[in-house]
């Protein structure tokens, strides 16, 4: 044998370090006590290592959430980086848990870590997955609801990446509106 050639396997750095959070609904605890940081990563390879290690979205118990946020931003409205912002919200019908949820969530994660929103990537705070009996939700959170150019660019790119047809619309809601009204009354600030 001529001996083995060892290759240095370099990892591919991401633009941002990301934190994955898990929320498990336990009514005996406060909302914040139910929120757990799983881990942080800042390379493509570490992302996949994590992704393959955790439950797929469709296998989570209803009431659970995953959140992926930039390091330093907590997955809640109250965070300074989120409080003036809002979210592009994708609501799924019950049956889509088995057909679309895992695909949509992975696509959302890839948009974030790959910086698909280009020059408006700085507007991105994170993304949230809610697994719920009445229908699952995925949302991309941005930092400034009044930044029309950034918000609409992100919405268009995101909708295209999910492969949604023109017949489907998704709406952007400011967190201040979501917090002050019951959810089904929250008006969309933008629609794509």
């Amino acid at each position: 044998a001529k001996g083995l050639v060892f290759e240095m396997v370099e990892k591919h750095p991401l633009q941002n370090r990301w934190a994955l959070w898990f929320f498990k609904n336990d009514k005996s605890k406060t909302w914040q006590a139910n929120l757990h940081l799983i881990t942080k990563f800042d390379t493509v390879e570490d992302f996949w290592g994590l992704y393959h290690h955790i439950q797929p979205a469709s296998k989570l118990t209803p009431g659970c959430d995953y959140s992926l946020f930039k390091d330093g931003i907590e997955p809640m409205w109250e965070d300074d980086q989120n409080k003036r912002g809002g979210r592009w919200l994708v609501t799924l019908a019950k049956q889509q848990r088995h057909t679309d949820l895992d695909h949509f969530w992975l696509e959302t994660l890839l948009c974030l870590i790959g910086e698909s929103f280009e020059r408006f990537g700085g507007d991105i705070c994170g993304a949230v997955l809610n697994v719920r009996a009445k229908g699952d939700k995925i949302a991309v959170w941005t930092c400034e609801a009044d930044n029309r150019d950034g918000v609409t660019h992100i919405g268009r790119v995101y909708k295209e990446r999910l492969g949604l047809t023109q017949k489907v619309t998704i709406g952007y809601q400011a967190h201040t509106d979501t917090a002050s009204k019951s959810h089904n009354l929250t008006k969309n600030k933008f629609v794509v």
Binding site: P13, Q15, V44, S116
Partner: peptide, 18 residues
Amino acid sequence: GTRIIYDRKFLMECRNSP
């Protein structure tokens, strides 16, 4: 500065690497 951008195809190829 420059932003490190990875397209979907590249990220998926990394998934399949050993």
